[in-house]
Design a protein around this nucleic acid. Structure first.
Length: 877
RNA sequence: GGAAGUUUAGCUCAGCUGGUUCAGAGCAUCUGCCUUACAAGCAGAGGGUCGGGGGUUCGAAUCCCUCAACUUCCACCA
C-alpha cells in the first residue's frame, strides 16, 4: 500500500483551497432559481490578527455556509474588515511615537496618510489567515467599512438621521478617555474594581476658626473643582451648618452648604462634596441646584489653571501630592483603603474621566422600538435564548448614543460650521454651502465654512454592515438594489456575546430603520475561548496558542473539529490542545478507513450475498444518524451534529461496518459490497465536509477522478430517507452477542485469536443466520449453531436469547451461577418496578397510552429474559 | 444594588413540555493487545445519592419552595 498511514494535512489544504479559489467555488451571484443563504462575517479589526475566538467563530460560520451550499442553496458568505477607529488610531499613534512623531505635530491629512499606509500594509492579514482555516468566503465581495461606498452610506445615514431629528448635538456628561483623548459611548466603558483610598478631608466652616466638616472622597485632586457641600436636610448632625459656607482646603474658596435628600446619611461622613465637572451624579445635582461648573482638567488628564495649584500635574500624581499637602495643612483626617469601581476605556484601558463636552448623540427612544419587539417576538432568534433577557434589559435602559469621537481615523462628521456660529449638516461641503447660503441668505464660499473635526463611532458604520455590503445607496435612495433584495435579510449571524449590544442590537436597529426588515433571522452567540484555568485567552496574558501554529501542527480540519467538539452555543469553550489532537486523530481515522477501502481488489465473480445484512444495517443506521444530524443543525447544536457524525464514522462505520464486510488479508471483495461501501463512504464524506472540508475533498477526489463541478464542496447534502429501527435494533442485538463473546474472552484471559464455538437458544434463528458470517468473523467463532442447551458451557443472555460457549472442564460452575443469579436478580427487580407501575390504577389511568404500552413491552421483555436466565441456571444444575 | 443563568462521572457537557433499573456521551483513567487500514490504533472494564434541604405526585435529574456556591449582564453612593 503506497498511501501514507498518517494523514498529512498541509499539502491537501494548500491544494484544495487553491482549487476552490481558482474555480471560484465560494462565489455567489444572484440566481433566482436558488434560495439564498447569506452570512455576513463579523468584520474583524482591519489591523488585527487571528485569535482563538475568531477560529471558533469562523469555523462555525464555515460549517453553516458549506452545509447550506451542499443543500443546494445559494450560499454567500461576505467577508470584510472593520476600520476599528479607536483601536487602529491608537496603534498608529503608537507607531508614530516609535518613529519619533507626535500626533499633535502633524496635520490630519498627514496622519491619515500614515494610517492608510498602515492599513494597506497590515490590513487584511487576518483575512489571509482565515483562508488557512478553510473559510469559504466569497472573497470578491470583501468589504471594508471605510471603502468609498460604505463610507458614503455612513454619511448618508448621518444626514438622514439628522434630518429626521434623531441626531442632535449637545453638551452632555460623557465618558472621556484622556489617553485616546476622545469621548466614548457607555458601552465602551468597562467597570473594574480597583483598590483605591478614601481620603477624609476637613473643610473649615467660613467665619469660624475651629469648626469644620469632614468629607470622604476617593478623588481629592478634584476638590478645587468643588462648588458646594451637600448634606441631607434630615441629618441632625449638621443642622447647625445649614445656610453656612465651607472653605475648600488649600485654595480657601468659599462654597455653599446645600441640602438634598440624595445624600445618604449612612454612607461616609454624611457630607458630600459636589464637583459637577468631574462626576456624573454631582453634575445632576449641580443642575438641580443651579450650581456653577468648574472644570479643572485638561483633555489629557492633567490639571489646568483653574485648579490654581498643581497645575500641569497628571490627575493621579496630583492625587498623591494633594494628599501630602492636605496633611501638611492639617486638614487630612485619615486615609482608608477602599475598593471602588472605576470605568476604564475598553480600548486604551485608561481610567475614564466623566467630562462635560459638546458631542453628537443619536436619540435611542424611538428608533429602537422595532428592534426591541422583533427579538421579543422571536422574529429574530437569539441562540441560546437566554440572551433574549439580556437584550431586553439593555433595550429598556438604553440611553442616547454618543456617536462622535475626537479621532481622525474614521468617518468624519458631515457637519459644517458657518461664520455666523450656526451649522448645517450635508453630505458634502458643496451641498452644505448651498444649503447654508440659501438658509441664511449669505454669499459664503467654501473657505468660509469648516467641517466638524470629529469622526463617528466605529459602530456607527458597522451597524449598517448587513445592508451596506450589498447596497450602499439604499440609505439615500430608499430603493433597494437587486443584490439587497436577493440576499437580505441574511440568515444567520455568528458572533460573540460581548458585542451583542455594541453591534448586534445596533444592526437590528439600523436594519429596521433602513430596510424595514430584520437584518438576519438567527443570531448564534458563541462562547468565549478560555484556557484550562478558565481565563479568557488574550494576548496580554500570553495564554493563547497561535492559531496558525495549531493549524500547522494538527491540520485545519483537526483544529476545526477540535474547537467544535465541546462548544454548545453560548457556552464558553475551555480550550485544551487535547481537543485539537482528538480532531487530528479523527482525520487520521477517516484517512485510514479510506486506505483500507482504497486497497481492495474487486473480483467480479464473487458473490456478496453474505454481506447483505450488513449493508442493510448500515444503510439504515446512516439515515438514522443523518436525521439526527439534520435535527441538530436546525437547532444550531453544532457540537452535537459533529459528535453524532463522529460516532457514526468511528463506531458504526469503522469499528463495525468495515470490520463486518472487510475481506481477509489480500483477499478481493465482491463488486456489490464494494459499490455500496463506496456509496456509504461518499455519503459520509458529504456530511463530514462542513466540518472537515480539506480531508473530505481530498478523499472525494481520490475515490475517483472528478470534474470541478463534481467537487465535494458542490455535492448535494444526502437526502433524508426513512429508516427501519427494527433493523438497527436487531443489529445492535447481534453486536451485543459479539461484545459478550469478546468480553468473555477478556475476562478469562483468553487470546482473541482463540476461536470459540457459539450455540444460541433463540426464537429468532433467522436473525443470527443472516449475520452468521459477521458473528463468525467479529467474535472469532469456529462455529455457530442453535440448540436449547450445551453442557459444560459458559453462558450469557442477550435479550431473550441464551448463548452458550462450551469450555470443556475449565468452566467454573459456581462462578457462572453467581453471574447468572446476579443478572436474574437485577432483571427481577426491574420487572418488579414495572409491575408496580402497571398494577397501579392511577398510573394506568393517568399516564399516556404510549407510556403504558412501553411498560407492557418492558414487562414482556423482562419476563422472557428471566425465563431464559432461569433455564440457564437450571442447566447448570 | 438589580437581573438572568449554571450546579449531573476526574474534565467538558446531553438529558425537550415529569414515565424504561435513567442515570447518558465524548475525553481522561484502568486492563489486555504492535491482530498487515489506523498504537494519532484495537478489544474490554471501572466510575455519579443528578449542589444541600423540604414539598407536589402513583412516579422527580426533570415541577415548586428554600439554602449554598459559581458565572454573566446591567447599575455605580461620595
Amino acid at each position: 500500500m503506497s498511501i501514507a498511514s498518517k494523514y498529512e494535512p498541509a499539502a491537501a489544504e494548500a491544494k484544495w483551497y487553491a482549487y476552490w479559489m481558482e474555480h471560484k467555488l465560494f462565489s455567489s451571484k444572484i440566481d433566482h432559481s436558488k434560495e439564498p443563504y447569506t452570512i455576513v462575517i463579523p468584520p474583524p479589526n482591519v489591523t488585527g490578527v487571528l485569535h482563538m475566538g475568531h477560529m471558533l467563530n469562523n469555523t462555525i460560520q464555515d460549517v453553516l455556509i458549506r452545509r447550506a451550499r451542499m443543500q443546494g442553496k445559494n450560499a454567500c458568505w461576505v467577508p470584510g474588515t472593520d476600520h476599528a477607529s479607536i483601536a487602529t488610531e491608537t496603534k498608529v499613534v503608537q507607531l508614530l511615537k516609535e518613529k519619533g512623531i507626535d500626533k499633535k505635530d502633524i496635520s490630519r491629512e498627514e496622519f491619515l496618510t500614515y494610517a492608510w499606509e498602515w492599513k494597506e500594509k497590515y490590513g487584511g492579514i487576518i483575512l489571509e489567515q482565515l483562508k488557512k482555516l478553510g473559510a469559504s468566503c466569497d472573497w470578491d465581495r470583501t468589504a471594508f467599512t471605510m471603502d468609498p461606498g460604505l463610507s458614503d452610506a455612513v454619511i448618508s445615514v448621518f444626514v438622514d438621521l439628522y434630518q429626521k431629528g434623531k441626531i442632535y448635538r449637545g453638551i452632555r456628561m460623557v465618558n472621556w478617555d484622556p489617553k485616546g483623548q476622545t469621548a466614548l459611548s457607555d458601552d465602551e466603558v468597562i467597570m473594574k474594581e480597583i483598590a483605591s483610598k478614601l481620603y477624609y478631608i476637613h473643610y473649615k466652616i467660613e467665619g469660624t476658626e475651629d469648626q469644620f466638616l469632614t468629607i470622604a472622597t476617593t478623588r481629592p485632586e478634584t476638590i478645587m473643582a468643588d462648588v458646594a457641600i451637600c448634606i441631607n436636610p434630615n441629618d441632625p448632625r449638621f443642622t447647625h451648618l445649614k445656610g453656612k459656607k465651607a472653605l475648600i482646603p488649600l485654595i480657601h474658596r468659599a462654597i455653599p452648604i446645600i441640602e438634598d435628600e440624595y445624600v445618604d446619611m449612612e454612607f461616609g461622613t454624611g457630607c458630600l462634596k459636589v464637583t459637577p465637572a468631574h462626576d456624573i451624579n454631582d453634575y445632576e445635582l449641580g443642575l438641580k441646584h443651579k450650581l456653577e461648573v468648574i472644570d479643572i482638567l485638561k483633555d489629557n488628564g492633567t490639571l489646568n489653571e483653574k485648579a490654581q495649584i498643581l497645575v500641569g500635574e497628571d490627575r493621579f500624581i496630583a492625587r498623591k501630592k494633594i494628599g501630602k499637602l492636605l496633611d501638611e495643612a492639617g486638614q487630612l483626617e485619615k486615609i482608608e483603603d477602599y475598593k471602588s469601581n472605576v470605568g476604564h476605556s475598553e480600548r486604551t484601558d485608561a481610567v475614564i474621566e466623566p467630562k462635560l463636552s459638546l458631542q453628537w448623540f443619536l436619540k435611542m427612544d424611538e428608533i429602537t422600538k422595532p428592534a426591541f419587539t422583533s427579538v421579543m417576538e422571536d422574529v429574530i432568534q437569539l441562540h441560546p435564548p437566554k440572551f433574549k433577557n439580556m437584550y431586553r434589559v439593555w433595550m429598556e435602559n438604553v440611553r442616547d448614543w454618543c456617536i462622535s469621537r475626537q479621532l481622525w481615523w474614521g468617518h468624519r462628521i458631515p457637519a459644517y460650521y458657518l461664520p455666523n456660529g450656526e451649522f448645517v449638516v450635508a453630505k458634502t461641503a458643496e451641498e452644505a454651502l448651498t444649503e447654508a447660503n440659501a438658509k441664511f441668505g449669505a454669499n459664503w464660499t467654501l473657505a468660509d465654512i469648516s467641517q466638524d473635526e470629529d469622526v463617528l463611532d466605529t459602530w456607527f458604520s458597522s451597524w449598517l454592515w448587513p445592508i451596506s455590503v450589498f447596497d450602499t445607496e439604499v440609505f439615500s435612495t430608499g430603493q433597494p438594489n437587486e443584490e439587497l433584495k436577493y440576499y437580505y435579510p441574511t440568515n444567520d449571524l455568528v458572533t460573540a456575546p460581548e458585542i451583542l449590544f455594541f453591534w448586534v442590537a445596533r444592526m437590528i436597529i439600523a436594519g429596521y430603520e433602513y430596510t424595514g426588515e430584520k437584518p438576519f433571522k438567527n443570531v448564534y452567540l458563541t462562547g468565549i475561548v478560555r484556557d484550562k484555568l478558565g481565563r479568557k485567552m488574550s494576548k496580554s496574558l500570553g495564554n493563547s496558542p497561535d492559531p496558525l501554529d495549531l493549524i500547522a501542527q494538527y491540520g485545519a480540519d483537526g483544529v476545526r473539529t477540535g474547537m467544535l467538539f465541546s462548544s454548545p452555543a453560548g457556552n464558553d469553550l475551555p480550550f485544551d490542545e487535547k481537543l485539537v489532537e482528538q480532531g487530528r486523530n479523527f482525520a487520521n481515522k477517516i484517512w485510514n478507513a479510506f486506505r483500507l477501502v482504497q486497497g481492495w481488489e474487486i473480483d467480479k465473480k464473487l458473490d456478496g450475498s453474505a454481506n447483505a445484512a450488513s449493508l442493510e444495517w448500515f444503510e439504515n443506521r446512516f439515515h438514522q444518524a443523518l436525521t439526527e444530524i439534520n435535527e441538530h443543525f436546525e437547532k444550531f447544536r453544532i457540537s452535537d451534529a459533529l459528535m453524532t457524525t463522529y460516532k457514526l464514522v468511528w463506531d458504526d462505520f469503522c469499528s463495525w461496518y468495515l470490520e463486518m464486510i472487510k475481506p481477509g488479508f489480500q483477499q478481493p471483495i465482491d463488486p456489490a459490497t464494494h459499490r455500496k461501501t463506496i456509496e456509504f463512504f461518499e455519503n459520509i464524506l458529504k456530511i463530514l465536509h462542513p466540518f472537515m472540508p480539506f480531508l473530505s475533498e481530498e478523499i472525494w477526489h481520490q475515490i475517483k477522478k472528478r470534474t470541478v463541478e463534481e467537487s465535494l464542496i458542490l455535492a448535494s447534502w444526502p437526502a433524508e430517507k426513512g429508516y427501519d429501527t427494527k433493523i438497527i435494533e436487531e443489529a445492535v442485538q447481534v453486536f451485543e452477542v459479539v461484545s459478550q463473546v469478546r468480553n468473555l474472552r477478556a475476562s478469562k484471559g483468553m487470546s482473541p485469536k482463540e476461536s470459540l464455538d457459539l450455540t444460541i437458544n433463540t426464537q429468532n434463528e433467522g436473525l443470527y443466520s443472516r449475520f452468521q458470517a459477521v458473528l463468525i468473523k467479529l467474535a472469532n467463532l469456529s462455529s455457530l449453531s442453535f440448540a436449547e442447551n450445551v453442557d459444560n458451557a459458559m453462558s450469557f443472555v442477550v435479550k431473550a436469547d441464551e448463548c452458550f460457549i462450551p469450555m470443556g472442564d475449565s468452566i467454573d460452575v459456581e462462578e457462572e451461577k453467581e453471574n447468572l443469579k446476579k443478572e436474574l436478580e437485577y432483571t427481577r427487580g426491574f420487572l418488579n418496578s414495572v409491575m408496580k407501575k402497571l398494577s397501579n390504577e392511577r398510573f394506568v389511568a393517568g399516564a399516556p397510552a404510549q407510556v403504558v404500552e412501553m411498560e407492557k413491552k418492558k414487562q414482556a421483555d423482562a419476563e422472557a429474559k428471566i425465563k431464559a436466565l432461569e433455564e440457564s441456571l437450571l442447566k447448570l444444575g
